[in-house]
């Protein structure tokens, strides 16, 4: 054999080795990914598995890995748990979340439109004021908020809590909606303006459809954040009938109703996880838009 042939052959083997190596690395990557994915899913899966055990089995020490019998009794127990059962707390959380979503959408859209499309005296100052509240963690203003809400008799009301949540959502919402409006070309509005449309009808008839993705993002964050929020809900609600879902579940964990019923607690965990997971999975794209927009907000 001549030298060039040997070299070509060596080259081919080299390529083959490289290809095999790349392939092995890819499979290794998948293996690691699958193991990690199982670890990440484990807590949720474990909670679900236990929620469908028989109540007695869910309390077994040590626990069983798999249910001997599938049962919805834990969920049924929740319906009468505590004083009023879980339905009331799901209702509370839902009402608070819906008011928060609605309020956040309306205020963010109006404000975002105003800041994006109009010029008026003091605009920059006002916009900076709104944005600067992003720097203030709500944890540091809870005391005066509580004093104020008590003063106007809105403590222990779902509406009062929703008002507080809307405020927490506003800086992010305004920022996002302003950017959405800024991305709409001016020409679209100008022709409508020349046709003699009023500002509100332009917003309503024309712009809303164009900024819909932004609105969906604001709505998702408003829902998930208010649905999950714990500290403010704990502070503003002292009447058990008004507890939101996370606060109610904490009363189970603290054994306020007698022994800690872990089976029912896990059923409750699943009930409270489902809405946020469902919304996230269905509207993931909008959620991620908000995450990137919000994270690089400054």
């Amino acid at each position: 054999m001549t030298a060039p042939v040997i070299e070509a052959q060596a080259e081919r083997t080299q390529q083959e080795i490289r290809r095999l190596r790349r392939r092995a690395l890819l499979w290794l990557r998948y293996l690691v990914l699958i193991i990690l994915a199982l670890l990440f899913l484990f807590p949720i899966a474990w909670s679900f598995i236990n929620s469908i055990k028989l109540p007695a089995e869910a309390l077994a020490a040590p626990p069983t890995y798999l249910p001997s019998e599938i049962s919805l009794d834990n969920y049924e127990e929740l319906t009468t748990y505590g004083k009023i059962g879980i339905a009331q707390h799901v209702y509370n959380s839902t009402v608070v979340a819906l008011i928060t979503v609605l309020g956040s959408i309306v205020l963010s859209t109006l404000g975002g439109y105003g800041f994006a499309r109009f010029s008026f005296p003091g605009k920059n100052v006002l916009f900076i004021m709104v944005l600067s509240t992003l720097m203030i963690p709500f944890q540091s203003i809870l005391i005066p908020l509580f004093v104020m809400i008590v003063q106007v008799d809105l403590h222990d009301t779902l509406f009062g809590l929703a008002l507080v949540y809307i405020t927490f959502q506003l800086p992010f919402g305004i920022f996002l909606m302003r950017n959405s409006f800024l991305a709409v070309p001016h020409e679209i509005e100008e022709s409508a303006l020349l046709d003699g449309c009023g500002s509100l009808s332009i917003l309503y008839r024309l712009m809303l459809r164009l900024v819909l993705p932004g609105i969906v993002t604001v709505a998702i964050y408003a829902f998930i954040n208010s649905w999950n929020e714990f500290l403010a809900a704990l502070i503003f609600m002292s009447d058990q009938d008004k507890f939101t879902l996370p606060v109610f579940l904490t009363t189970i964990r603290y054994g306020i109703w007698g022994d800690v019923n872990w089976g029912a607690l896990q059923a409750g965990v699943i009930v409270s996880i489902i809405p946020s997971l469902g919304i996230f999975l269905a509207l993931q794209r909008y959620y991620m838009d908000g995450l990137m927009g919000g994270a690089v907000k400054n």
Partner: peptide, 19 residues
């Protein structure tokens, strides 16, 4: 424009700046 941003600014003032 001022009217559009008023509700938002009022909210932020009452629930953020004043607290």
């Amino acid at each position: 424009g001022l009217l559009f941003v008023t509700p938002t600014v009022a909210f932020v003032t009452v629930f953020f700046i004043i607290p």
